[in-house]
Simulated scan of single mutants.
Amino acid sequence: MLLEDDAGLRFTFSAGLESAGHDVIALSSCSEAIQALKTFKPDVLVLDLLIDDGSSIEVASFANYAAPEAEVVYVTGSGMFPRGELFNMVNNLRWVLRKPIQIADLNDMISHVALRQSETALSFGQAG
């Protein structure tokens, strides 16, 4: 799941992730993301921190409840939380990437997080 309010970045990130083989649902608001999480269970959420209709921290928190296996990667241009405070606020946060970002770096991070999930699932005897 990709949450980005900038239409150009949303298109670029979505196209780049899809070309790398990821299934992507791209959304532009926190309310859309929360609604989607009621039926869609993503492996990874790529969230812009500051969205037009608020902070996406509420989306990450809801995902922790609605899709507890999902992990969060923030992609942000914000200078908020420069000392990693965000990791204390979002239980399922795995990485924060600062904009501008190369799509290859985003793909690498998503692949890394997904691989970690597979290894964790296998270590608990679940199908990955």
Rank of each mutant, 00 (worst) to 15 (best):
W95N: 05
L115P: 00
M80K: 14
V90G: 02
F13D: 03
L27Q: 05
I34K: 12
N64W: 04
L45K: 11
A121E: 10
N92M: 04
F124L: 12
A7V: 13
P100L: 05
D6N: 15
N91E: 09
Q35G: 03
V72P: 03
E4Y: 09
S14P: 01
T120G: 05
A63G: 09
E71G: 07
V59E: 03
L2F: 06
S123R: 14
L27E: 01
E32C: 02
E4W: 12
L49N: 03
S19M: 08
A33Q: 04
L115C: 11
N107I: 14
S28R: 11
S19A: 13
D53M: 10
I101A: 14
T12A: 15
V96N: 02
L9D: 08
R98M: 11
V44W: 00
A36G: 03
L45S: 06
G77E: 05
D108E: 05
L9F: 04
G8D: 10
I51S: 07
S31N: 12
D48Q: 06
Q35E: 15
A63M: 01
R83K: 13
K41E: 05
Y65P: 00
S118A: 10
L93Y: 06
F11P: 00
A7R: 12
D5G: 15
A67W: 02
I51G: 08
L3Y: 06
V113L: 02
S118G: 05
F87M: 00
A121G: 06
E71I: 03
D108K: 10
D53G: 11
V59H: 04
S118I: 01
L106Q: 09
S55C: 12
S123L: 13
I57S: 02
F81W: 15
C30Q: 06
N64S: 15
W95V: 04
G84W: 01
A67M: 00
G77P: 09
V24K: 07
G84V: 10
T76I: 11
V96A: 05
Q102Y: 03
I25L: 13
S78T: 13
L47Q: 09
M80Q: 14
S118W: 02
F124E: 12
E119A: 11
S55L: 15
G84M: 01
A60P: 14
F81V: 01
S29V: 10
D48G: 06
L3M: 04
N92C: 13
F87R: 10
A66I: 05
M109I: 07
E85A: 00
S14K: 13
V46C: 11
S14F: 06
D53W: 13
V75H: 03
A7N: 10
N91D: 08
N107K: 07
V75I: 15
D53P: 13
S29W: 05
K38P: 04
S123Y: 09
L2H: 05
G128F: 11
P100V: 03
S56H: 09
L17K: 00
P68C: 06
D108C: 01
I101Q: 10
E85T: 04
G128T: 14
A63K: 08
Q117W: 02
L47G: 02
L93E: 02
M89P: 01
R83Q: 09
N107E: 07
T12S: 14
Q117L: 14
H112E: 04
F11R: 15
G125D: 08
F124S: 09
A26M: 07
A70Y: 05
H22G: 02
D53T: 12
M89Y: 02
A67G: 01
